[in-house]
Amino acid sequence: MPFSDTLLAEAESVWEAQYDHPFVTELAAGTLDAAAFRHWVEQDYRYLLDYADVFSLAAASADGEERTARLAETAHRILADEMDLHRSFAEEYGLTPADLEGAEKAPTCQAYTDHLVRAAREGGLATVAAAVYPCGQGYLDVADHMAELADGEHRYTPFVEKYTSDTFRETVSWMRELVDDLADERPGAREDMRAAFHRSAQLEHDFWEMAYTREQWDVTPHQRTAADAD
C-alpha cells in the first residue's frame, strides 16, 4: 500500500470530522455566516503566506532539478493563483489588501504555521512533504464533499470550484506522489513523516473550528487579588 494511503487511513476519523463540521456543511449549503467566512479569508491569507514560504524552503533543500523546480512552482502558484481567490473574496467582504496583511493570526493559525515552518527548517524534505500534504488533500476532499452537498449555486460556489478544479487536483496528485516517493526512498523518515502528517491533519480540522468560532487571542487581563499581592 502506498504510504499516503496508510496515512489517510490512519486519519480517517479526522477526515470524517472535517466533513461533518458546521463550517463545511453550512458553506456547502450557502448558509455560512458571512463573519465566519470573512475570518477564514483573513486567517487563510496569512496561512498561505507561510505555506508558500515552506514550499520555497523545501525547494532550496530538494535533491534533483525536477523536484526543486516543482516545489518552487507550487510556491509561486499559491501566491499568484490561490491568493487571488482570497483577494477577490476580501474585496467582496469589504477587506482591503492592508486589512489582509495586517490581520493577526489566531492561535490555531499561528500553531499551524509554526508547525509547518518548523518542519521546513528542522526536518528533512520527506517530513516537509508529509506536513504540507494534509492541506492539499484535505481541501480537495472537503471541497468534493461540499460539491456533493451543494444544491445549486450560491455566494460560496467559487470556493468549491477552486478546490475541485483540475489544476488543484493535479497539484494534490503531485503532492501525494512526492510523499510516496520520499517514503520509499527514505524509509527511516517514515515515523517523522507520520507525526508531521497527523499534526497537520488535526490542525486542518481545527482551522475550520477556528474560522467558525472566529477564534481570537484571549486578552482579558488577569484580575489581581489579595492572594496575588501576597
Rank of each mutant, 00 (worst) to 15 (best):
Tyr212Gly: 05
Ala69Ser: 12
Ala62Trp: 04
Leu7Met: 13
Glu16Leu: 12
His76Ala: 13
Ser13Trp: 07
Val54Pro: 01
Phe168Lys: 03
Val172Tyr: 04
Met193Asp: 06
Asp228Trp: 04
Thr31His: 02
Arg118Gly: 00
His76Lys: 09
Tyr93Gln: 14
Lys105Ile: 02
Ser88Phe: 09
Ala195Ser: 15
Glu82Tyr: 12
Thr31Tyr: 02
Val132Lys: 06
Val160Asn: 06
Pro107Tyr: 05
Asp81Tyr: 08
Arg155Lys: 15
Gly136Gln: 02
Ala35Pro: 01
Gln110Asn: 09
Tyr47Asp: 05
Met1Phe: 07
His86Thr: 06
Ala34Ser: 11
Thr96Lys: 11
Asp114Met: 10
Ala129Gln: 04
Ala103Leu: 06
Ala111Cys: 04
Asp206Ser: 10
Arg169Ser: 11
Arg155Trp: 09
Pro2Met: 06
Pro187Gln: 09
Ala35Tyr: 04
Thr220Arg: 15
Trp15Ala: 14
Phe197Asp: 01
Leu7Ala: 13
Asp192Pro: 01
Leu178Cys: 10
Ala80Gly: 01
Thr167Val: 10
Tyr156Leu: 14
Ala126Pro: 00
Asp20Glu: 15
Ala106Ile: 02
Ala69Leu: 14
Ala34Met: 05
Glu26Phe: 09
Asp218Glu: 09
Asp181Met: 07
Arg194Ala: 04
His154Gly: 13
Glu16Gln: 14
Ala72Asn: 03
Phe89Thr: 08
Thr213Asn: 07
Pro221Gly: 07
Val172His: 03
Asp53Lys: 01
Thr157Gln: 11
Pro22Trp: 10
Ala150Asn: 03
Pro2Phe: 09
Leu7Pro: 14
Met210Asp: 14
Phe168Ser: 03
Gly152Lys: 04
Ala80Phe: 08
Tyr156Met: 10
Gln43Met: 12
Glu204Gln: 15
His21Pro: 11
Ala229Lys: 02
Ala34Val: 12
His86Ile: 11
Gly152Met: 05
Gly123Tyr: 00
Phe3His: 01
Phe197Lys: 02
Ser61Met: 14
Ala75Thr: 02
Arg38Asp: 07
Lys162Gly: 00
Tyr19Asn: 11
Tyr47Pro: 05
Glu191Arg: 08
Asp151Gly: 02
Tyr139Glu: 00
Leu7Lys: 13
Ala52Pro: 01
Phe159Trp: 15
Leu8Pro: 00
Thr113Cys: 12
Pro187His: 09
Ala189Val: 03
